[in-house]
Design a binder for these strands. Structure first.
Length: 465
RNA sequence: GGCGACGUACCCAAGUGGUUAAGGGGGGGGUCUGCAAAACCCCUAUUCAGCGGUUCGAAUCCGCUCGUCGCCUCCA
């Protein structure tokens, strides 16, 4: 039971060995809830979802924490613009985020800590850094981390601290800092901004400190996996490491996992670039949630992934193919004896699937194993070599793999009696070769979202999405 | 400018030294079928950005060239 993951710090793929045997602790940098998240954001969350799902599928215990940043410059700005307090902005978009998560069948993290509910923990951490000389106050009550006090600063991002000079793109007007590269742990109180009274004085937290405080609160001073998009490597994760390790004197995180960007139009999807797509918009354009999910998880997480009509179309077709098989297996009836080679087929599929996923979540070959299985099962359905029980076994096997992928259709709920009557009427019409009536009923059912197909197993149906 | 990733068919994307270069999508042909849909079968890269090199052997290793993207700033 070994799984290898690519650790950004090591720059290499390493076997996952958790601090506590059998129990993996994961922290993910979550969204800042100042607006609706876009699908690029969700790519990075779904990558962790797949990781968590796979670890659990393999029998590991997982504790997954993902923060919701509910206080920062953007939220403050949005609240001011709307004339409300920051809570009404962050609550609204946190709610929307959770709804989008559910739409995409994303596992709900075990812990979803919010920054504003952990101010005291952050203040304690900053207090420790002040006491140890890793941080200093400025005249306005802000507190900065002293990068010069942390020699390994820049190691994660492979940036040379000496080379990080003030350039065109680095603001140098934040006077008061000892060094322009120092970053804010705490921002002094300002008129019109939220402020908390704490052991280190009044003010509000800087961005990076929340992740250190909350991850260590829930997962311990040293935990296993920390995830985020590649754009968080610097400065966010670099800063987290500096402030965490400076305060504890221990290794903060054992494995840093970073997800590559989702691209649209040849560039990374970003609000600032203006090329974003949101979950709600994508669904409104007729793409099913499962197709969207597949489009976002179908490439290796460390490779840039292009998103657009083509990728959504391909994912939709692939999901349809899976659906068609499940529908066919469900309708399948045969007097054939059990297929003695079915177990071997399943074993081979699982071995290929697991081998691929064990290798840094190499999902492409894993999906290939699934689709190879789909073709082979369709062959056997056509050849009528499966028993009725085999078809059921096959469905169960696919649903087992789908604990990791979460792209299979939900168990079909029973139809209401009116729809069932339409189906029954159509079956009767077909029995009497009343093709016109049969076609009419098919159209009526299609209007109600029930797609019917005729096969030698009789009429079968599935819901349109 | 510094650091890094990548360039495989019409599109997406595995493969990182050795028989026929996965899989998905798309396209073409066929089978099945009242029709439709689905499914199945066949075809769609003698070739892996280009050029050199190492090797018995390279898409896979090395060098150079060209191109794309990312980070160095808020950002998943």
């Amino acid at each position: 039971m070994t799984i290898r993951l690519h650790d950004t710090m090591a720059g290499a793929t390493r076997e996952l060995v958790p601090v506590e045997p059998g129990h993996v602790r994961i922290y993910s940098c979550g969204p800042t809830v100042y607006g609706p998240a876009h699908v690029g954001n969700f790519r990075s969350f779904l990558f962790v979802d797949v990781l968590v799902r796979y670890l659990r599928y393999k029998g590991w215990r997982v504790t997954w924490a993902m923060n919701l940043t509910d206080v920062d410059d953007k939220i403050i700005r949005a609240a001011k613009a709307a004339g409300v307090d920051i809570g009404s902005i962050s609550d609204k978009f946190a709610e929307q985020f959770l709804a989008d998560m559910a739409t995409l069948s994303m596992t709900v993290p075990d812990i979803l800590p919010r920054a504003t509910q952990h101010i005291a923990q952050m203040a304690d951490l900053i207090g420790k850094l002040l006491a140890d000389g890793h941080a200093y106050r400025t005249d306005d009550g802000s507190i900065f981390f002293r990068i010069a006090s942390w020699p390994t600063y820049g190691r994660l991002a492979r940036l040379d601290p000496e080379g990080m000079r003030v350039g065109e793109r680095v603001e140098s007007d934040e006077y008061g800092k000892d060094d322009v590269r120092d970053f804010a742990l705490w921002k002094g109180p300002k008129e019109g901004e939220p402020s908390w009274d704490t052991v280190i004085g009044p003010g509000r937290p800087g961005w990076h400190i929340e992740c250190s405080a909350m991850s260590m609160t829930y997962l311990g001073e040293t935990f296993d996996i920390h995830t985020g998009g590649v754009d968080l490597i610097f400065p966010h994760h670099e800063d987290e490491i500096a402030q965490s390790e400076a305060s504890t004197g221990r290794t903060f995180v054992n494995y840093w996992l970073h997800c590559a960007h989702l691209q649209m139009g040849g560039q990374k999807m970003a609000k600032s670039v203006g090329n974003i797509a949101r979950v709600s918009e994508t669904l409104a354009s007729g793409v099913s949630p499962r197709a969207l999910r597949l489009a976002l998880i179908s490439a290796h997480y460390r490779a840039a992934l292009s998103f657009g009509d083509d990728s959504l179309q391909a994912a939709s077709s692939a999901v349809d193919r899976l659906d068609a098989l499940i529908t066919a297996l469900t309708a399948y009836r045969s007097d054939s004896p059990d297929d003695g080679t079915l177990a071997t087929l399943f074993d081979g599929t699982r071995a290929a699937f697991d081998t691929a996923m064990d290798d840094d979540l190499n999902i492409s070959p894993a999906l290939a194993a699934l689709f190879d299985l789909i073709r082979e099962l369709n062959r056997r359905i056509d050849a009528r070599t499966l028993s009725t029980a085999d078809a059921e076994r096959a469905t169960l096997f696919i649903r087992d793999l789908d604990r990791v992928l979460a792209i299979a259709p939900p168990e079909a709920a029973a139809l209401d009696s009116e729809l069932q009557k339409l189906l029954d009427d159509r079956t009767a019409a077909r029995a009497g070769k009343q093709w016109a009536e049969s076609d009419r009923l098919r159209a009526v059912l299609a209007d109600r979202g029930i797609l019917v197909e005729d096969t030698r197993d009789g009429q079968r149906w599935h819901r349109a999405e």
